[in-house]
Design a binder for these strands. Structure first.
Lengths: 210, 210
DNA sequence: TCGTTTTCTGACCGTATGGTCAAGATCACG
DNA sequence: CGTGATCTTGACCATACGGTCAGAAAACGA
């Protein structure tokens, strides 16, 4: 694919810089939205002058686009757990686990994605229409197969997928609300496990897989 | 409660103006976020000069606050269907129906709320800590009672509530994504009904209520 | 070491935004 | 009809923002 880049101090610096900027940008975009985020704030959080930030990412939109695609890639990868599963209990169970873990580990990315979609997906509409559409069709077909094989109740696969996305991402996107209702404290390890188990229990039982 | 306002041309104009502005603001805030929304755009959409908009709502934040509280009130009202229900099938079923209807009827308000919470609820944090916290505790207790009475499986009531919120609001907040995956067309009456039925079927069965 | 390329940075610029203001238009009411 | 209150509006202002640029500093390859 890409030519194997020479290892040099320059390349190392570049990689580390881009990662630091992307991380800062993810956080700022998540907390302020695209419109509310400022290049100055991102630069400050990444610890470099604004002009230097513009050297690595020419425009705000280019930086934003990179951030959005990053979380999308992570989610696509998480769906691997879906495949090669003998049935819904393993496949959907593993998918819920994976998506819940991502919600905990990448709450900012999830929020940026949510914000992007809510605003009409101006930047990643093409992804929705190609990659996501194909992905969804494929998994819907897989779920339908499970239904045909009698491994779960006859449920519209698409609405099930929406439910999986909604429920798992809610713990990232509405994390602040959940935290507030949890007495102002972030969910503990134990509570995250309880959340995962609740979600899995209700959905797997709800689709007649257990 | 409030003193019965005299009916005059002025009062009528004021009410109609405020409603028109709030409606326009809801849409603009939903589509651009608080930071991306401009008073000029809201004014244009409401059909009046920007200076006149500032006459009715002194600051952007004041206008935004009104919009956020509006959707919150609507949701609180929808929860009435929860009460006075003999059991989870009726109570939760009616709640899902109500919230799904709101998602269809007020998608902009839902998005504004989601955006607000995602950004750390800077404007309605007090609501979260008072009204919402009380509301949640009350419903959680009600669900627990149903569990104790053997009307449903023993599930953490809070995670069930999160699931209800997540799933129903997803159809508003991620409506654009759903529309794209639906071939670019908004969900039809029939499809909305299918969505409602799917959600209700999975959750009610998942909690062992049916 | 020397010339070239890449990286860094303070100063700067045009524009758009939230908000103000003063003067005019419209309405309420005695 | 006249007077005060409410409403409307174009012009205006200070600020903050995204983005530019010229030149300094550092890294590279020979």
């Amino acid at each position: 694919m890409t030519a194997p880049e020479r290892i040099s101090k320059r390349n190392a610096i570049r990689q580390e810089m881009e990662a630091r900027i992307l991380s800062a940008a993810e956080k700022v975009f998540a907390e302020a939205g695209f419109g509310g985020a400022t290049m100055q704030l991102i630069a400050d959080m990444a610890g470099l002058p604004k002009a230097n930030l513009h050297y690595y990412f020419a425009t705000k939109e280019e930086l934003y686009r990179k951030v959005v695609r990053q979380i999308f890639e992570i989610w696509l990868h998480a769906a691997d757990s879906f495949d090669n599963a003998p049935g819904p209990v393993e496949g959907i169970g593993a998918y819920i686990d994976a998506k819940m873990d991502i919600s905990r580990r990448h709450p900012f990315g999830s929020k940026v994605w949510a914000s992007e979609v809510m605003h009409g997906a101006p930047v990643i509409q093409d992804y929705l229409e190609t990659t996501l559409r194909e992905w969804t069709s494929g998994r819907a077909a897989l779920i339908q197969r499970w239904i045909d094989e009698g491994k779960m109740a006859p449920i519209d696969p698409r609405h099930l997928l929406y439910m999986l996305w909604a429920t798992t991402q809610h713990y990232a996107d509405f994390g602040h609300q959940i935290e507030t209702l949890n007495g102002g404290r972030a969910l503990s390890d134990r509570q995250w496990k309880a959340a995962k188990d609740s979600v899995k229990a209700i959905i797997l039982k709800g689709i007649g897989a257990i």
